[in-house]
Write a protein that binds this DNA or RNA. Structure first.
Lengths: 347, 347
DNA sequence: ATGAAAGCGCTAACAT
DNA sequence: ATGTTAGCGCTTTCAT
């Protein structure tokens, strides 16, 4: 017998329960799985014995026998340096959504942060496990496709390859909403702080800004912030140096917007009187800034919970799509009718 | 044969690789596990065949055979209403630390948010799985003990029962450092915003504040903020209404401090000139506030990574303890030598 | 309604 | 160095 496996002894197995209850293992299995084919009297006896022995079924053995692991994989591509999963409040909301959908289902959640160098091999290994499915929180279209080719039970929370099932939001429309709002409250020099070019969401928001600003006949004023606070801070400072006339900023994520607000006030300008700011996400960062941040709210928990349920329901189908709204949440950094916009002399 | 298991067919097994390579399954096992007892020529042949067939070992079968699941469990007690794991940036740091320690080890991470009603049953089930061990991110001493009695491979990141292995920080000393700093920069009406009474960390920080404030001969001024932004905001507003003379606040977590800063500035007071603020954690919230938050930095990633490695090394031993420093990080909300404290007339 | 038996895919003694 | 064999704990036919 295997030594390691023997070490696990002491824990009662289904056979221990069976013999103690004077029935077969098959019957115990039927009872603990609430399956048909066991008389009420035996059911109660088996349950009593199981409880007395402190029997806990082995999910591993069960998984091997059924060919199915009751696990959802959440996968995020993590560039080792920035440590996204910890450094970005977005994932907290994803996690919350998944956990709420999983509650009471007996399904477990595994988290995988893929570093670029190991990503392909990791995807192959993950797709081989017969899990409930994979939730791609921030995976490139290429890797998403790679997973999909090996296992269909997968769904992406970001824009991805056509074949791969995904939940989508109208990033372009959302940015238009944000920029239009800034325009409506009288701003005419609306800059943008963009996310990383490699990120598909960031790319869409960048395009959205360009479309909106062009349609309004306003000048395009953009800088890159890399989806992190420091990037947002530096981008805002740079923008204000180069273009002191800026009176509003659209920032592609709240974390960058927090940095931007700090940079703006550090130059002596006021938010929103001198520079109005609209962020994106409605993450924790949005309620920590001062003033609180107006932002485009992504229904992240809802999306994550839906994605989880869709996976539990089976293969979503080739190219599955579901769309979600993005709503403008007005707080003080860009209010509906706040303090009048103060015209200021060029510095 | 089991139907579900048969459905998993198509995926090549170790026996498929063995017969295709003209060797036994045992040999294939030795090769893929880098175990001794296989000639170089056979190794390369087996590897080639495995790659050609797209063979991926089943972690489930492996786990059953070895009696060991290569999984770390991270457990957090989650009151369904507040959704802590998503709503508190602290867990992002924990996650980042665990993931970094896990990288390249082939060990997986599972996340469990226990709701109070199911917690005991869930703990029993989790402790029965022969995993690498459990990381208790925010689990009460009672539940921690329950787990420990069933499985020794467990470690807590918060103060817990004496028997249960744990990593600890000197919460009391840290609060003393914070309060002393506020005193040193001239503040004499130092209020506190506390965390939930049920939380062991919060309890220690509460005690720390009382000790420090008593030793300094200053009046105790406290309110409860529940470890969330809104609570911090409301507590600060209430404190300022009842005690307009307050010139500093020690806030037991950064998220509450973010709310507190918003409440303070909303009353027309300035941070730090009128009211200095020191938070706790150095989470994402600390760098999103305006002005940026001075705070007591917990080495969370380090602790989480160490805890993970300790579990991978085996049973930490009865009552295992390791201590970590908490450092004062000075930012603008309570600078070392910032703008002079402005005395102001009672309102 | 119940039990016997045959695996699920892998590992690890034990032979050779 | 390599193969044979016997499980790990459970589920699921197939008999009875």
């Amino acid at each position: 017998m295997n030594q390691a496996a023997r070490a696990q002894r002491g824990k009662p197995t289904i056979r221990d329960v069976a013999s103690a209850a004077g029935v077969s293992a098959a019957t115990v299995s039927r009872v603990i799985n609430h399956a048909a084919g066991a008389s009420p009297s035996i059911r109660t006896r088996v349950r009593a014995v199981a409880a007395e022995l402190g029997y806990q079924p082995s999910s591993t053995a069960r998984a091997l026998a059924t060919g199915r692991t009751r696990t959802i994989e959440m996968i995020v591509t993590d560039s080792c340096t920035s440590g996204w999963i910890g450094a970005h409040p977005h994932y907290g909301r994803v996690l919350a959504g998944v956990m709420s959908a999983l509650e009471g289902t007996g399904t477990q959640l595994r988290i995988h942060a893929l570093t670029p160098d190991r990503a392909a091999a990791a995807i192959d290994a993950l797709a081989a496990d017969a899990t409930v499915g994979a939730l791609l929180a921030n995976v490139t279209p290429e890797l998403a496709t790679r997973y999909y080719l090996r296992c269909r039970r997968v769904i992406s929370l970001v824009p991805t390859a056509p074949a791969v099932p995904a939940l989508e939001v109208d990033n372009l429309g959302a940015v238009r909403t944000a920029v239009s709002h800034l325009h409506r409250i009288g701003r005419r020099r609306i800059a943008a702080i963009h996310g990383p070019v490699t990120n598909s969401c960031a790319a869409q928001r960048r395009d959205g800004y360009r479309n909106a600003i062009t349609d309004l006949g306003l000048p395009e004023l953009g800088a890159d912030g890399g989806f992190c606070r420091d990037g947002g801070h530096d981008a805002a400072r740079e923008l204000l140096e180069r273009h002191p006339e800026i009176d509003a900023m659209f920032v592609a994520c709240d974390l960058m917007a927090a940095g931007a607000i700090q940079a703006i006030t550090a130059t002596g300008l006021r938010v929103p009187e001198d520079v109005a700011v609209i962020g994106f996400d409605d993450s924790l960062a949005a309620i920590c800034t001062n003033p609180p941040l107006s932002t485009m709210r992504l229904p992240v928990e809802q999306m994550a919970a839906d994605a989880t349920r869709i996976l539990m329901d089976g293969d979503p189908g080739f190219g599955f799509r579901r769309f979600y709204p993005v709503d403008l949440v007005l707080r003080e950094s860009a209010p509906e009718r706040g303090p009048a916009h103060t015209l200021r002399a060029p510095r």
